[in-house]
Amino acid sequence: MDNILEIRNLRKDFGEFTLKDISFSLERGYVMGFIGPNGAGKSTTIKLIMNLIRRDAGEIKVFGLDNRKYELKVKERIGFVYDESHYYEELTINEMKRIIAPFYRQWDDNMFNRYIREFGLQPDKKIKNLSKGMKMKFSLAAALSHNADLIIMDEPTSGLDPVFRNEILDIMRDLLQDENKGVLFSTHITTDLDKVADYITFIHNGELVLTGSKESINEKYGIVKGSQELLDGDTRKEFLGIRETGFGFEALTGNVDRVRKLFADSVIIERPSLEDIMLYTVRGSANA
């Protein structure tokens, strides 16, 4: 299989926080949603991929190449978008572009100008006078204008309105008409991913909770609803997280088939959203 991104046993110890041996991979031609609550380690992982942080152990391969040994080759083909603008804000969009462009051998000015027009940005406007959404669009334009094969986005939609978030998703879909490209998209707004992501990787407290195709996750996971009496010491163990109310319980299972056999028709099983999976898992681990 042709992986555009491959991460194996990635570890980084900050003392107060440790990213613990994360592994996942992304095939060419797909979008991976990278989810987890704030502070889960998403940005740390992305910074490790971008070599902004030095890893303590593990392996990161982009386009099959080690991201440190082939740093230049790898970064030449990555487009990055971060949650905050780190541009020189006194500069105009065009001035900033003139700084970035010469670093990329494959920079395409026509493409950049097309995106700028499409996004409704004024090239002679100073970056500090742009709204958050506008800055994000500029970032995106820069990320998409050097024929990058892997687009890495760290919380690109946080703090943006739904209309603009949808625009970003559309751009990603456009991008994926080319089956050689891939997108890694970190977010805590999982509804964006219900629509566009092919694969999901979920981390929490620096640990990998799950990784796989959205289809397989949809098949394995389920929200189970039933009456209180069904819960006892043994059955509780079947669930990753349980929410009990005075009128019954709702719980997340990672093995729908087993639960169906166990409880038969005494429970209702629904398809969980990514948000359900995230909420139940995070709550479940907080109780444990």
Binding site: Y30, L169, R173, L176, Q177, V196, Y199, S213, K214, E215
Partner: peptide, 12 residues
């Protein structure tokens, strides 16, 4: 890929 884009769902 085109169908996924049109239907606004994921490629997979």
């Amino acid at each position: 890929r085109n169908l996924a884009k049109q239907l606004q769902i994921s490629v997979i």
